[in-house]
Design a protein around this nucleic acid. Structure first.
Length: 362
DNA sequence: GACTCGTGGTC
DNA sequence: TGACCAAGAGT
């Protein structure tokens, strides 16, 4: 049941809250690589990398990315294959394809300058409500809400909001609240402080309320229910998919790789040839025939490497991997190539197939 | 509104 | 150890 804004903000000391929060952030903020300056491009890249991804995971990727693509122009002009390779292992690969497309658009349409206009910036690919608010407030000091999971957790506790944070309508309610309590003097620090508080103090399981700079403002703490917030519906169970894959080597020592479709799971990444097992039968003979048919080769030998299990957000792959040797026709195309082991390292693979490659070489 | 889209860490 | 989580966006 939604409370109205009046009800939520009644008796809340906005100015004091802003001061307590920003003072804390000024003293306690972490030293992170994207906080060195206010380059909108760097802020933008960091925000995209941080979507659904931990800070510790992002840091090394951010350094590598900035080394390879130091400016917006550098990224805009970069080869797509190279950009995807720089994202390898980070997950949610559509993020980087959208970012690449967006940066190209900024280069062409806006002379390489990240737009300050909310309307223009939020139209770019991969730029949603959160990223819009985050980049505009942090890079340009524009008072726009940046409501992520941290902010919803923090504010649901402070204002005792029991709505399901998995719903879009709830996020919009939080944006409305932030519009009313955001600091006009320092929107950048205000937004970052809310997120930093969620990351360091107002954490999901056991919040450190005794160390909280805004404890006096927190209704959940006052009522002792901080651990029961926020409310979030559970995700459904994951489905299991059985695959068989082959690392196939030809007479020249080249390996057969194949490009995944441009949409869907792991789009545009490369992988070893594989198919789904209709039944749970693992017959090497049947697989050899499939490989021959599918890739127009003669399979000389085929032996198992091992079993690999990989968990995604909504499904599980169970891969039975083989090593094989082939002779005969070597058909190549845009989406199917024979590469040397050295060349193979320059293509972006899903983590599951990286593991297969590692096992193959042991 | 519900579902898709990765990965590694945590309790 | 399995469920849940972590700075969301697109369809």
């Amino acid at each position: 049941m939604k409370k109205n804004l009046q009800q939520i903000l009644d008796g809340f000391h906005i100015e004091q809250f802003q001061n307590d929060l920003i003072d804390w952030f000024t003293k306690e903020q972490r030293d992170l690589p994207w906080r060195k300056d206010r380059d909108p491009y760097k802020i933008w890249v960091s925000e995209v990398m941080l979507q659904q991804t931990r800070v510790d995971t992002v840091i090394p990727y951010f350094h590598k990315f900035m080394e390879k693509f130091p400016t917006l122009e550098a990224l805009a002009e970069a080869d797509e294959e190279e950009v995807l390779k720089a994202w390898e292992g980070l997950g949610y690969y559509s993020r980087v394809r959208n970012l690449h497309a967006a940066v190209k658009e900024v280069k062409e349409k806006y002379d390489g300058e990240v737009p300050r206009s909310k309307e223009q910036f939020s139209k770019l690919k991969g730029v949603g409500p959160y990223t819009t608010g985050a980049v505009l407030s942090i890079a340009y000091g524009i008072p726009e809400p940046a409501v992520d999971g941290n902010v919803m957790r923090v504010l649901s506790r402070i204002f005792l909001i029991w709505d399901d944070i998995a719903k879009v309508s709830t996020r919009k309610q939080f944006e409305e609240i932030v519009r009313h309590i955001i600091s006009r003097e320092n929107p950048s620090y205000f937004n970052q402080a809310l997120m930093e508080l969620g990351a360091l103090i107002c954490v999901p399981m056991n919040p450190l309320c005794l160390l909280c700079p805004v404890q006096a403002h927190c209704r959940a703490f006052h009522e002792g229910v901080e651990k029961e917030l926020p409310v979030k519906t559970k995700t459904k169970a994951t489905k299991k998919v059985y695959l068989r894959a082959v690392v196939l080597k030809n007479e020249e020592g080249r390996i057969l790789i194949r490009k995944r479709p441009s949409e869907g799971l792991l789009a545009n990444l490369w992988e070893f040839p594989n198919d789904e097992l209709p039944l749970q039968i693992e017959e090497a003979q049947a697989f050899a025939e499939w490989i021959s048919r599918e890739h127009n080769v003669v399979v000389q030998s085929l032996e198992p490497i091992g079993e690999f299990e990989h968990v995604f957000s909504h499904l599980i792959w169970h891969i039975t991997a083989y090593r094989g040797e082939a002779i005969g026709q070597t058909s190549e195309s845009e989406t199917s190539k024979w590469v040397t082991p050295e060349q193979l390292e320059t293509y972006a693979f899903p983590v599951s197939h990286q593991r297969i490659w590692k096992a193959y070489n042991e």
